[in-house]
Design a protein around this nucleic acid. Sequence first.
DNA 1: CATTCCTGTGACAAATATATGACAGGCGCA
DNA 2: TGCGCCTGTCATATATTTGTCACAGGAATG
Lengths: 234, 234
Amino acid sequence: MQNKTILIVDDEAAVRDMLRVALEMAEYRCIEAENAQAAHALVIDEKPDLILLDWMLPDVSGVELARRLKRDELTASIPIIMLTAKGEEDHKIKGLETGADDYITKPFSPRELVARLKAVLRRAGPSTPEEPLTAGQLVLDPISHRVTIGGQAVEMGPTEFRLLTFFLSHQERAYTRTQLLDHVWGGNVYVEERTVDVHIRRLRKALAVDGHDRFIQTVRGTGYRFSVQTAEKV
Amino acid sequence: MQNKTILIVDDEAAVRDMLRVALEMAEYRCIEAENAQAAHALVIDEKPDLILLDWMLPDVSGVELARRLKRDELTASIPIIMLTAKGEEDHKIKGLETGADDYITKPFSPRELVARLKAVLRRAGPSTPEEPLTAGQLVLDPISHRVTIGGQAVEMGPTEFRLLTFFLSHQERAYTRTQLLDHVWGGNVYVEERTVDVHIRRLRKALAVDGHDRFIQTVRGTGYRFSVQTAEKV
DNA sequence: CATTCCTGTGACAAATATATGACAGGCGCA
DNA sequence: TGCGCCTGTCATATATTTGTCACAGGAATG
């Protein structure tokens, strides 16, 4: 099973750390934000599978953030679990009214957290396959699990497919090998960084329909970047 | 990459040796302590970048030590990885609640150790700035790791990129070669001052899209200055 | 104008980083 | 069990980048 990404939003680093470790033990990948603004950016950027949202945040309240996310077409389908402190129980119902899918009262045991999280994820069902991802002539259809360039089918292995999927949803951005390992392989896997090179090469080879790879640029000293601009330019 | 210092705290010499070997192979500098008291002294004295802390120690328990370190202003920011034995799994999360940033269960592979250690260090480290840096027509986008002048892509090596990044965030100010070495190359590297000249030249060449470099001025007898005013003036 | 500093350049060899081709183990499937 | 496809690692080939030099110009100085 592919790793789910959980976004943790809490202003206390200690709480975030605890949550992160508990979740990573359960094989989830975590990303963190300490305020609503950062959280919003991350939601757009990383498309997490679930959001753990603290009731109280320094800038905008968690409730308000939840409301916004649920109102936005793109983010509405992401389940939200609200974290509330003991005294705030009165707001429970409100929390759910704003669109949260569940709430947990602090303090809670890591076990409980993971259990409820799983429940919410299960309820949300298998994340609906999205729209085809494209880059110029290149089209990746998540539903049929197929890749084509100008209508021409392209074959590749599972890892290359995941890599390409990631690249297509994060174009024009340079990633280090480590970041790619985190995102494509999943946080709790330990492989050599050079392995990324090899898979990049395999992907390039697969995409080089006409003998030229114009999609993946190497960023010397850093890593790689997927970009269609450069690709089309030729 | 600059060498990070890791403090190993474990009462068994054999374990310390193993850890040290694994870490030194990965280019880390190691210091060791076999009890909490010695560990505490070393933390103050050496300011390690990360602490590997055994759960069980002869004097004070590792958990307690972690708690103390995290409570102290000076040491709170140092990441801690807790080492636990197989049977102690239940304690894992408790350990994390006390402030550890990650845990590893013994026995573990050296590779896993190094990987998790890197992950923890990475999380603690600074993150890339998000906003593009600009100077007139010149734009450096840290995200895509690209430089353009009036939309036209500009190629340069990693060092030139770092140099330009520095200049763009410190415009209109003259820097000596030594200062540039400190900021762009990183404090403790030994290279000739004249090396800066060469990189300045390379950067100028890269930026001289139209045949003229108007961005970097020479401050005779001192060093260089990046300024867009002069650049635009033509 | 002669001197003495400084900085600009082009060339290099060594150091690094990346691309490639091969390979053995792991896994699923017939 | 045998076969074929994937994967992660290596060792090796290539490609870039880097730090230094030696030398050419230019600028101050007197």
